[in-house]
Amino acid sequence: MKEYESLIIGGGPSGITAALYLLRAGIKIGWVEKLAPGGQVLLTEAIDNYPGFPQGIKGYELIDKFTAHLDQFEFDKIRDEALEIKDRQDKYLVRFSESEVAARTLIICTGAQWRKLGVPGENKYSGRGVSYCAVCDGNFFRGQEVACIGGGDTALEESLYLSKLVSKIYLIHRRDAFRGARLYQDKVLKDPKIEVIYNTIATEFVGDTDLTGIKLKDVKTGSQSLLNINGAFVFIGLDPAGGFFPADLETDSQGFIKTDHEMVTSMPGVFAAGDIRSKYCRQVSTAVGDGATAAYNAQAYLEKNF
């Protein structure tokens, strides 16, 4: 069985940064990512708030720059999904679908994933009108009418992106005001293609082979209606990604991992960084900081205990 001083689980910005810091410190690492590196950044069209790129940068271009940092190092990349973590006193065993490895420290950077609405028809029409990625799928709805569901930064940002492609956007929000950044709110409210429907939730996706509409319910009056659209984009928040964490690893009520400000978790030698942490601000910039902090503390832990 392969053995590492540190195993980094997850290849988004926090995992890449943790890998970079540990490699520079000469620590033997393994790096786990089930897909290509990048995580949610790959789902983001443009990153406008990462320092150093005042004109903004495309998500995949930023990730190419991040991973280029690692090109100078030789280390094990494990393209698989972690399924289980077992505590063996002085080390942890991590099981994958096709192998198992041992590591003295773990840095969990599994991130977050888009939350599903959980209403009838959502799975049936996923990929047939229901989407979670405007950048990927917006083009299929060029010149058509679509709905966006949500009221945070992502819902506003993606609606603005879609308004360049589609003929009309119904932005469906369950509250009477948006939570997203004021900058985006102002743009959305001024956009002639975006019609905001407040105090309303989607209760069902309907159609034949493809999506043709959404059933809506006004949460104030209880009145129901059918909105005819070809596409529906769901942007209602994030769930933790992973699901293989041991019972001893303390999480919050939503399943995000609790850490202190040094990225130390409830298990010795286990650190967490990025969106998988229980925290309020989930950004590329905070993930990068978390990754560096976790790597620094994993290194200190190795020096003290081994």
Binding site: L35, A36, G38, L42, L43, G59, R79, V135
Partner: peptide
């Protein structure tokens, strides 16, 4: 230009 397509490409 599709990020998730890039994500799945190595797989």
């Amino acid at each position: 230009w599709c990020g998730p397509c890039r994500a799945i490409a190595p797989v």
